[in-house]
Simulated scan of single mutants.
Amino acid sequence: MIATEIDKAFPCHNEPELFHAPEGREPANAALARVNAAKALCFTCPVIKACRDLGRKLRETGVWGGEDDDDREAAGYKPGPTTYVMNAPECGTEAGAKRHRRSGEKPCRPCQNAESSANVARKRQPIRCGTRPGYQRHRRRGETPCEACRIANSQADRRLRQTGSTLAA
């Protein structure tokens, strides 16, 4: 037999929609009926034990080898995040680091480096004199504001009273 003929012999190949929850919400009674139907098909499958072991090992969700998420969790195999992701961000990128964290993992060294580089690049520009933030920096430091910062702050105060915003038009 060729692979597709073998696949067709497995019940999950003929009705895959029973084995995984649909997108969005599913009424509780419909979910229970779907899961029970999937489990009933599993019990007719010749590879039920191997399928159950694979579902546990990969921390899959859905019905695998006659077990749903609750059954696997009760057996000590809590379903986790999807272990394979189509078009997943590559390691060594900032998006890769985010993917690691969403999966409950510590980012790998290349992802940590990429994230660190991105954070350094995003750091705020130094506060310049002659601006309201420059005036505020002088005040925080206990310094007497320079003339340019005092003028910028006065203009921002005037705009705030007149327009409700410190931003110039």
Rank of each mutant, 00 (worst) to 15 (best):
H13A: 12
H13M: 04
N14Y: 08
E15A: 10
P16Q: 13
P16N: 07
P16E: 07
E17Y: 02
L18K: 04
F19N: 06
H20M: 05
H20V: 00
H20I: 00
P22S: 15
E23N: 10
R25K: 09
E26Q: 07
A30I: 01
A30E: 11
A33W: 02
A33V: 00
N36W: 13
A37I: 01
K39F: 12
K39Y: 12
L41G: 07
C42V: 03
C42P: 00
C45M: 04
P46M: 03
I48L: 05
K49A: 15
A50S: 13
A50V: 06
D53R: 06
R56K: 12
K57C: 02
K57L: 08
L58R: 15
R59L: 09
R59C: 02
E60C: 05
T61H: 07
G62N: 07
W64S: 01
W64Q: 05
G65Q: 08
G65P: 02
E67K: 00
E67D: 07
D68L: 03
D69N: 08
D70N: 07
D71K: 06
D71H: 06
D71C: 06
E73M: 07
A74L: 10
A75W: 07
A75T: 02
A75N: 11
G76F: 08
G76D: 13
Y77D: 15
Y77Q: 10
K78M: 04
G80T: 04
P81A: 08
P81H: 03
P81M: 10
T82F: 13
Y84V: 05
Y84H: 14
M86Y: 10
A88D: 11
E90I: 01
C91Q: 13
T93I: 04
E94Y: 00
A95P: 02
G96W: 06
A97F: 05
R99L: 12
R99S: 06
E105Y: 13
E105I: 04
K106W: 13
P107V: 09
C108Q: 14
C108L: 11
C108S: 04
R109F: 14
P110H: 07
P110Y: 14
C111I: 00
Q112R: 09
Q112P: 00
S116G: 03
S116F: 11
S117H: 13
S117I: 03
N119A: 15
V120W: 11
R122Q: 15
R122G: 14
K123D: 14
I127Y: 07
C129K: 14
C129S: 09
G130I: 00
G130Y: 03
R132D: 14
R132V: 01
P133I: 01
G134A: 12
Y135A: 08
Y135E: 06
Q136T: 03
Q136S: 11
R139L: 12
R141P: 00
R141G: 02
E143F: 01
T144S: 15
T144Q: 15
P145M: 14
C146Y: 09
E147L: 01
